[in-house]
């Protein structure tokens, strides 16, 4: 049997479409973990990145935090926290957030730093407050890059959220881990395919968000 026939068999089995272990349920769980982790990471990375980028201060700290966070292995972190606090959502969220913060923080910082300084100077010269300068002058221009940081974070979280299954949680990772355990390769390949599809959907969502949110004057189209 080749991979395609595994995929075909997995998705055509009607048993895979119902119940607590059905595809809709697992997808929903997976998307929930992803959104939650991404939301937390954005809540940390965006304000920090915007602020450091705007003031130009703390650039070294940003780089240090990002490198340190990247050095942490997600799976190791999961196991470590699970051992300390026990099984639950926390051991899943921590590694996912740690994974997602660096791309968001670093790209946001770089995006704001790279905004042409003359409009900022003009805005300040016309008496605009610093918050308005950041949100109404710098952010709209930095937005494409900021979104690209969020996008790569989202892609990484979507694929890494499979580790939730190791601590008895759901998500698409269930198929992969259970499949490996049960030597049910149809399940493994089916789960992997779902993750890949979800990554593609994520790309599409960000593409649409960019079309909607970025001004044509910045897109230059």
């Amino acid at each position: 049997m080749n991979v395609l026939s595994f995929v075909n068999a997995f998705f055509s089995d009607s048993a895979h479409w119902h119940g607590y272990d059905g595809i809709p349920q697992r997808l929903l769980e997976h998307v929930q973990y992803t959104l939650m982790a991404l939301g937390l990471a954005a809540a940390i990375g965006l304000p920090l990145g915007l602020l450091t980028g705007h003031t130009g201060r703390g650039g070294n700290a940003v780089a240090f935090v990002a490198t340190a966070a990247r050095a942490l292995p997600s799976f190791g972190l999961l196991v470590l926290i699970a051992v300390v606090v026990g099984i639950g959502l926390l051991p899943v969220m921590v590694p996912l957030v740690v994974l997602a913060v660096p791309p968001i923080l670093v790209t946001t910082y770089e995006a704001v730093r790279s905004v042409d300084p003359s409009p900022v100077d003009a805005a300040r010269g016309m008496g605009m407050h610093e918050t308005s300068i950041l949100l109404r002058v710098e952010l709209p221009v930095a937005l494409p890059l900021v979104l690209s940081g969020l996008r790569s974070a989202a892609i990484q979280v979507v694929s890494t959220a499979t580790i939730a299954a190791y601590v008895s949680l759901g998500g698409i990772g269930r198929y992969i881990i259970d499949g490996l355990y049960q030597r049910d390769y149809e399940k493994v390949v089916g789960g992997a395919t779902l993750v890949a599809l979800l990554a593609l959907v994520t790309l599409a969502v960000f593409w649409a968000a960019e079309r909607l949110a970025v001004s044509p004057g910045v897109r230059r189209r």
Binding site: V120, G127, M128, G217
Partner: peptide, 23 residues
């Protein structure tokens, strides 16, 4: 206050400094 002062003075910077995301 510095913002009040600046709002009472138009400031044209070299190379215009327009906001590229606005019409």
């Amino acid at each position: 206050p510095v913002t009040t002062l600046r709002r009472s003075m138009g400031y044209v910077i070299q190379n215009a400094g327009l906001f590229q995301h606005r019409t």
